[in-house]
Design a protein around this nucleic acid. Structure first.
Lengths: 112, 112
DNA sequence: ATCTATCCATAGACAATCTATATATCCGTT
DNA sequence: AACGGATATATAGATTGTCTATGGATAGAT
């Protein structure tokens, strides 16, 4: 059976940063948010999420602090930094350029 | 320096199959075609291209035979099989579904 | 004859994702 | 009080895909 990817590789950091642009959130909440807004198309596995958050911390795109959720659970809240905001802009514009280019290659059989 | 990807990972097979849907072509020609149609945004490196073609051969999505180019050069021409055509349809529809989902996350409009 | 562009192909490095696992807590149910 | 399910973080290891680097071959132009 063909294994269906849960995520388009190379887009996870962008999705996380965009999610955090709406406000600080903990890891689990980020994963839920992406899944819900994507209407269950995009599933972020823990094994992808936490390494990605570590990368973003190292890059200075997010900062983290421990806190409590609304339901009184211990969780680590991530906040977008100004660098992260800038990075998101870069990634979104590169992504859109690529999608447009892919669209040009794909166009022809279904575009009409 | 930030390393810019030449290609959105996970899309190469689809781009190759779609290129071959227009007619048989050799590897080098596939790379040139993708680069030109994408207006230099997408660059397919040899180290990505040939392994991808080998995968597609093994999967039965393409078949290959040696021939000559218009300029009298020895080249291996790849042709899309019916299986490859079907596979392309699957990959394009999954891709579009993902792009739509990513678009929802990036746009931030919650569907209700 | 030498250079450039065309053409195929592989090995190894590297990065990103997924699978699997471990730990821990809160809360409702039995 | 014990249990299970949902919440929550995190890492190790496997897998996959792409890129870098390299090698070889040939046609045509200088």
């Amino acid at each position: 059976m063909t294994k269906r990817a849960e995520l388009l590789p190379g887009t996870l950091d962008m999705l996380i940063l965009r999610t955090l642009e709406r406000g600080p959130l903990h890891g689990y909440g980020i994963a839920l948010s992406i899944r819900r807004i994507s209407e269950d198309v995009l599933t972020v596995e823990e094994g992808s999420l936490y390494p990605a958050l570590q990368r973003s911390l190292l890059e200075g795109w997010v900062k983290a602090e421990w806190g409590k959720t609304e339901t009184n659970r211990r969780a680590r809240f991530y906040t977008l930094t100004p660098e992260g905001h800038r990075q998101l802009g870069v990634e979104m514009s590169e992504f859109e350029q690529m999608i447009a280019a892919i669209g040009r290659v794909l166009a022809g059989s279904q575009a009409g």
